[in-house]
Simulated scan of single mutants.
Amino acid sequence: MTTSTADREQLASFLMTLRSDDGIGARVMTVVEAVPRRLFVGPDIADIFADQSLPLECGQTMPSARAAVRLAGALRVQPESRILEIGTGSGYVTALLARLGLHVTTLDRYKTLLTRAAERLKACGITNVTYIQEDGRDGYAGQAPFDRIVVHASFEALPRAFVEQMASQGILVTAIGAPGERQRIVRHQKLGSRFEEELLFDARLQPLERGVATLL
Rank of each mutant, 00 (worst) to 15 (best):
Y140P: 00
L191M: 11
G211W: 12
Y131D: 01
A175D: 06
K190M: 07
L205G: 01
A123K: 15
L215S: 14
L200P: 01
S154V: 11
Q78E: 15
G139Q: 07
L100R: 06
A72M: 06
V212K: 13
L114S: 13
D147Y: 10
L191V: 14
T61L: 01
G180I: 13
L15P: 00
P63A: 09
L54N: 01
E197Y: 08
D138Y: 06
E33S: 12
S193Y: 02
A50K: 14
C58Y: 06
L172H: 06
C124F: 12
V150R: 06
Q52M: 12
A141R: 13
S53D: 15
G89Y: 09
L56G: 03
D47M: 14
A213Y: 01
V93R: 06
I83R: 09
G87P: 07
P55V: 06
A123Q: 13
L11P: 00
T130L: 04
L18I: 10
G89M: 13
S20M: 10
G42R: 14
L96F: 15
E164F: 05
V150W: 01
G170C: 11
G23A: 04
L158H: 08
Q60S: 01
T17K: 07
G125R: 08
R184N: 09
L215R: 15
R99Y: 03
M16F: 07
S20P: 00
L205C: 02
A178L: 06
A153W: 08
L208H: 03
F14N: 02
I83S: 02
E164L: 08
L158M: 08
S90W: 13
V28K: 12
M166Q: 05
L215K: 14
R194Y: 13
L97V: 12
A144W: 07
E164W: 06
Q189D: 06
S4K: 10
L102D: 04
M29Y: 02
A144H: 10
R160Y: 10
R120A: 02
D108M: 13
V150T: 13
A203H: 05
D47N: 15
P55I: 09
V28T: 11
R76S: 08
F162N: 01
R66E: 10
R37S: 02
S53Q: 10
D51I: 12
Y140R: 10
Q206I: 03
T112G: 03
Y110A: 05
L113V: 02
R148L: 04
V129Q: 03
P159M: 04
T115C: 07
L172P: 00
A50L: 12
A26D: 09
R148E: 00
R37M: 04
S20F: 08
T115W: 04
K190D: 00
G125N: 02
D138Q: 13
G125M: 03
V173K: 09
E9A: 14
E80P: 10
K122M: 10
V163I: 14
E9G: 09
I45H: 12
H188E: 02
G87W: 07
V31F: 06
